[in-house]
Design a protein around this nucleic acid. Sequence first.
RNA 1: CGGGGCGUAGCGCAGCCUGGUAGCGCGCCUGCUUUGGGAGCAGGAUGUCGGAGGUUCAAAUCCUCUCGCCCCGACCA
Length: 568
Amino acid sequence: MHFSEMFIPTLRESPAEAEAVSHILMLRAGYVRQLAAGLYIYLPLAWKVMERITNIIREEMGKIGAQEMCLPALQPREVWQKTGRWDDIGEEMFRLQDRGSSDLCLGMTHEEIVTWLASMEIRSYRDLPQVWYQIQTKFRDEARPKSGVLRTREFIMKDSYSFDRDERGLEENYQKHSDAYHRIFSRCGLAFYRVESDPGMMGGATAHEFMAPSPAGEDVIALCKKCGYAANIELAESVPAPQPPLSDAETWTREDVSTPEKRTVDEVSGFLHVSTLYIIKSLLLISKDGPFLALVRGDQELHEKKLMKIVGDFRTAEKDEVKDILGVEPGFIGPHDNELKKIADISLKEGIYISGANKKDFHTKGLRPSLHFKAEWHDIHVAQEGEGCPRCGSEITLQKAIEIGNIFRLGTKYSVPFKALYLDKKGKEVPIVMGSYGIGPARIAAAVIEQSNDKDGIIWPLSIAPFDVEIIPLNIGDRTISQTAEQFYNALKKENMDVLIDDRDERPGVKFKDADLIGIPLQLIVGGKNLKDGIVEIKYRSTKAITKVLIQEAVKKLKEMKNQLESD
RNA sequence: CGGGGCGUAGCGCAGCCUGGUAGCGCGCCUGCUUUGGGAGCAGGAUGUCGGAGGUUCAAAUCCUCUCGCCCCGACCA
């Protein structure tokens, strides 16, 4: 393409509304424009990147035998009612009515639709397995769109669905997808981890997410460098360091100490000059089975999602309820001397503690769990940096990350309500076993930018760059320069390279700046002085290293360099 | 949905407190010069000051309401 004919509206300054690096650079380099909150226009450069990404996805999906199709974005209420999600999902779903007042929604995902299809068409075990996918727009009425294309209300997603006879088949397809995803993200030049994740609204058994580390990420993942344990903080386990023995710990006998007006862990810790590791945080919560206490160590935070998995939905008790149930106001409640059900974090299992005394302005010192109270023990704390890996014990680290893909074992969660059944070899009706697998191509692009940029702009990996090479004739007023540049353009096209030539009547500085901003991996610089010596320059965008080559060798050299970048 | 911030030319911003002819830089258009890291000179175009209502002789500025966007949190494939 000729730069002068292509729509690449670069900006000198970053628009004020952008904060995330990828957002700033996509705006400045002329890749996207924002229409409204969470709605983006993908300009030609961005669309070329998206195309390259989706091509990689198509290739890899093809390799695992997945078949591309296209499902409607407009979907009738009835299918969503089959699974109950019409009511479960709430405000995140865009809903509308047609002229006949029938309820419809804009699809936020397509499990219902493919399962409906499968229920209509799949009859026999001979029809299975099937793997279907599409690359299509999804709609979600996000409470807070943010960070450019990272969280939008309308976005393109590759979603695939596997249909198997049994768990073994699902396992195979799950693994195939996992492997394909590894290849896709690697080919796109991303650093990423596969982590254990919470299935959330998708339901089903277990799931994994693919996470690209980046400060712009919304998720936090826990990683163990030693054994490879990797999990979303939503469910990451950890082993907090044990309480160190207090020099005078042995002398702590159980006694109530006066702690006037000291309610929070920090207040009590400061007042008694004791580390928060020796304090029990007691929270009175109400589940559908009634009130119970959740106990975590003073240095830990209660992980509500983990707790919810144990006791189901719960809420915190009101001030008055605490008084009614325990006879004391919040801040002085403790796990001893009452018969409430208790769920305690594993960090509390050993050691000696201080907790509320269940009487106002007093705390009890010298409490020993299991001696002074009974509890169910679970991991209900939020994992923290530096704590022990649940598998191997070595230190875990926490990182922010962008979710670029996910894979879910759905099992029969969708096939049962849809009666998506098949007849097995013995003629028995059996529900199809399903999996679902998503990738966000725009998130891949944004994550790559987040991970690969410098002060001058984007640094695309060759695999998903909008072009392979940008030719920069430094002065198109000079006929020798512009003609040489055009000759290179044609020669490189003949070699099947995707080339952008900056044929604008701009000064060299402007072209250099724009080229670095846009981030095409190779630059071919055609300038007057070098040309007189029969020389042009080739520059790597990533390192800015310049190679001078003879004009007649430049095409060959560029091909070599491209091949080199491809194999990196 | 809770908390905070911001809406003035295409972009970045000043002006608002203390009401009185709407500004600056960049970009854009024309011409000349210039051509290896966002050129110089000369000339020029561009605004419902987010919107509505109110106060006032007079509102970008003060008041009320409203819409939009961004950030933090809640929520979230």
